[in-house]
Amino acid sequence: MPMDAGTIESMIKESLPDAEVTIQDLAGDGDHYSALVVSRAFAGKTRVQQHQMVYQALEGRMGGELHALALQTSTPKEA
């Protein structure tokens, strides 16, 4: 069952409360999104760690229900 953008956004915000999340539906099929996530929680973390934090927020749906999420992460000052 594909995911909708609103669910993705709320799940990310649940674990990263200060996050600014911008999601684009790339294919209109609920399976291919791009997301820009900006949060202070990423400070000092490598890109891999930042993306892992977002995947954790999505509680295992990444790569399963959610086939493709082109992800970009940054801390507020870089944005």
């Binding site: 890109r47 891999v48 993306h51 082109a70 992800l71 970009q72």
Partner: peptide
Amino acid sequence: FVGGCDIVREM
């Protein structure tokens, strides 16, 4: 581990 597609492309 360097990353997946997003990170490799961004780098």
